[in-house]
Simulated scan of single mutants.
Amino acid sequence: MVVSTLDDVIVALRAAGCVFAEDEAALLLDATAGDPARLDDLVTRRVAGTPLEYLLGWVEFRGMRVRVRPGVFVPRQRTAFLVERGLAGVPEGSRRACVVDLCCGCGALGLAAATELDARGCEVELVAADIDPIAVACARENLTPIAAPVFRGDLFDALPGDLRGRIDMLLANTPYVPSARVADLPPEARDHEPLVALDGGADGLDVFRRVAEGAAEWLAPGGTVLVETGTGQVDTACAVLVEYGLTPRVEHSEEHYATVVLGTRATESR
């Protein structure tokens, strides 16, 4: 494949089925900075199905460029709604907040939440964790500049013990695709992203159940866990939260095509 102009790239991407061919073409030209050989290579790889974000080395998330690398789950734009709902739960004027980004991937959710809370004048204690070593390395690149540690391990097992009972906002972008539906995912996800970040088990909620169980112990009184789900999973997810003593709430966003299930730990009586 030989491409040299914006129009050439647009035509190639359209032929490959890229819905936002014009936007992607502009980004690829900008990334290659006048290097025709590199442009040709990136376009060839994009046409073959490599996610655009892997080629660029970053994804835009809530107005920030967050580093990504091959083998790391690419945060979806709809997941910005999960962060939005988390931020809405921190009262204006709050001076401190403990935030955990569990199943953090590249760390985009925690980075966005911490950055926006800091802009409000709220001091954030942010910790992130993931079971995948590639994700942990990528998240460290993104979170080290804000002095947020990233740990590797299985859900709460990865977290420092002193966080138990202190987490105000628990962001958990758990996998929620039922195992039988993974094969139906777009090739960009199915063929390039880690299965552990996609496959949620028989009904898609296996990891969610484990997060809900742990959240009941790790959240601060009044703290909230937020998880993205499919619309057909809401009733089951809410029942799980109730089972573990958390008060459920469901938020939908038509703008983001997103559904978030929240579970709040009761405030301890005085």
Rank of each mutant, 00 (worst) to 15 (best):
H256R: 14
D118I: 14
A33H: 03
G17Y: 12
L155Y: 01
F151M: 15
V74G: 05
A37H: 05
V196T: 14
G232H: 10
E188Q: 08
E213Q: 11
R152Q: 11
A212I: 02
F208R: 03
V59E: 08
A197N: 00
A266T: 10
V207S: 03
E53R: 01
D184G: 12
D7W: 15
D101I: 03
G200A: 04
R62F: 11
D203Q: 10
E53A: 13
V261K: 02
D7R: 14
A137K: 12
E116R: 10
G57P: 00
P70K: 10
C106M: 05
A266Y: 15
L27Q: 04
D118M: 14
L198A: 11
A113D: 03
D168F: 09
T50R: 15
V100C: 05
V43S: 00
G223R: 00
T259L: 00
C103E: 00
P186V: 08
R85F: 01
A180T: 05
S94Y: 04
V3H: 04
V150H: 01
V260T: 10
H252K: 09
G93R: 11
R38T: 14
E188K: 06
D35M: 05
D184C: 07
A258K: 00
Q77P: 08
L28Q: 06
G63S: 02
R96P: 01
A215P: 02
G17D: 01
V124Y: 07
G63L: 09
T229R: 09
A31E: 12
G161A: 11
L28G: 08
T264Y: 02
D23I: 12
A135K: 01
F151N: 12
E53G: 04
G204T: 09
A215F: 06
L155P: 09
P36E: 15
R140T: 14
L126P: 00
G245L: 05
G214I: 01
W58P: 11
V225P: 00
L226V: 11
N173S: 15
